[in-house]
Design a binder for these strands. Structure first.
Length: 183
DNA sequence: GGCCCCCCTG
DNA sequence: CAGGGGGGCC
């Protein structure tokens, strides 16, 4: 196939700099994955492979990367449910009253988790996704749908359709390494 | 079987 | 976050 996996350094097609290939996901890869979450909550394994050009993928590290996003989603949804219940407890009546922007408490909670060092300017679309998710949880709980053991499934389905395109620059190994400096 | 997702746990 | 288990889908 002309795919020399034994070679450590090859030329990056875009930046023309040498890329060190690895099969081990680093803390930098993790940091980058978290930033990707702002755009996509449900990236497919093929998309993930494309966005980590410096990784020599195999079954194990692919599963690991996919698992990361699963963990990201868990934290995300737990926060959503918590805040939705909080709004109900505070007497909010309509889901339409839920408005999320970059100053919202829920936003700060998520930002500190996925974007600790503020290395990325969060896309407005993410605030919209948070707001939509919050409203779905709010309505479901308000309608007592949480009595159903699998009541969250319907919400997951809706949110899964709200993924956005991940910017191309995420594919740049050079960009990823710049995240290391910005600590 | 293999892949993916969620749940629960530590 | 990683491990392990369960269930769904092709």
């Amino acid at each position: 196939m002309g795919n020399d996996n034994g070679v450590d350094d090859q030329l990056d097609a875009v930046t023309s700099v040498s890329v060190h290939y690895t099969s081990t996901l680093s803390s930098l890869h993790l940091r980058k994955a978290k930033l990707m979450f702002f755009f996509s909550r449900y990236p497919s394994s093929t998309i993930l492979r494309n966005y980590f050009p410096d990784v020599k993928f195999n079954k194990a590290n692919t599963a690991q990367l996919v698992k990361w996003f699963s963990n990201f989603r868990e934290f995300f949804y737990i926060q959503m449910e918590k805040f939705a219940r909080q709004h109900l407890a505070e007497g909010m009546r309509s889901a339409d009253d839920i408005l999320v922007d970059c100053d919202s408490e829920i936003f700060r909670a998520l930002n500190s988790h996925y974007n600790r060092n503020n290395q990325l300017e969060i896309p407005a679309s993410f605030c919209f996704v948070i707001q939509a998710t919050l409203r779905e949880f709010f309505k479901a709980i308000q309608d007592n749908k949480d009595m159903d053991p699998s009541w969250k499934k319907a919400i997951y389905k809706i949110i899964a359709r709200m993924d956005d395109q991940i910017p191309e620059y995420f594919k740049s190994v050079q960009w990823m390494e710049s995240l290391e400096t910005n600590i």
